[in-house]
Design a protein around this nucleic acid. Structure first.
Lengths: 147, 147
DNA sequence: GACGGTATGTCAGGATGCTGACATGAGTCA
DNA sequence: TGACTCATGTCAGCATCCTGACATACCGTC
């Protein structure tokens, strides 16, 4: 760098992006050897924690559009990692569930991601983590209603 | 949502992604009317604060690849918002600078983004902001060396 | 001075995600 | 019941960004 930060380095927004970017990169690094992407992992993890989630709910949870999640679900279905009923039990919503194979595929990935998160939190005490959690939640809420 | 969070809602990593996503969405909302994207704004803002940055440095600062930044710079150059020397003064590095027109184009965008950041920080006191800053920086550093 | 390592700018090809649009089903209200 | 609103699943087309690769220029050690 030619010159040290004047303003960007003091901006919480920029730092937020920096942290999120670093986290994503670290996750990609550990997931790649397992043949898994971040979006793929997010989808499976969501389904493990909340079985029966719909396509749209998964999309919101993984921060992608319905359309993107839809093609991902089709792939996962072909690979036998998830199942969706052929016809909607109610409305148009197709509740998705993990197959045993999907659960197995998720195991290693979950462990890898946990280790990344642990590394990220190393050097932070419990109260600092709690403070960070409160701060981030406050930011999310403040940005949401102002939308 | 079908069910309240079991684990994801308590994960700092997930919350970090959520906050970053909300911030980006809010920025896009205020920048779109100005005919500007987040990456475009980031590039111009970087150049305003650190004139003479190279393509690669801009890419790192805006969290995209050199290749992506390169095509953006070509566009900005065609539109007369930035200038790059035809030949590198030293090495291969082409120092980029904002034109007066680029500076003008940036003005409104900067104000808009500042307002978003202000909204994001509303409801947080000074010590909380400082705590959040320290926590995020700690996370970035911890993720970087482990890479 | 020569050499290996590193960083840069740039080109082509491909993967991923998004915007726009449509039909369908559920809930609301007159 | 019928009209209106909203959310969903899905299709097609497009934009964006990335991966891979190459030639070139600096910088260190020898």
């Amino acid at each position: 760098m030619s010159q040290d930060g004047v303003d960007l380095e003091t901006s919480l927004g920029y730092l937020l992006k920096e942290a999120s970017s670093a986290l994503r990169a670290a996750m990609e690094d550990v997931l790649r050897p397992l043949g898994m992407s971040v979006t793929r992992y997010s989808c499976l993890e969501l389904l493990a924690q909340r079985p029966g989630l719909s396509n749209s709910e998964l999309a919101r949870g993984a921060f992608v559009t319905r359309q993107s999640m839809n093609v991902l679900l089709q792939t996962l279905e072909e690979e036998g990692l998830v199942t969706r009923p052929a016809r909607a039990p109610v409305g148009k919503v197709l509740p998705t569930r993990l197959t045993p194979r999907g659960r197995r595929s998720l195991q290693g990935a979950t462990a890898a991601v946990r280790s990344v998160e642990a590394r990220m939190l190393a050097g932070m005490g419990e109260p600092e983590q709690a403070a960070a959690f409160r701060a981030l939640r406050s930011m999310v809420d403040a940005l949401r209603d102002g939308g």
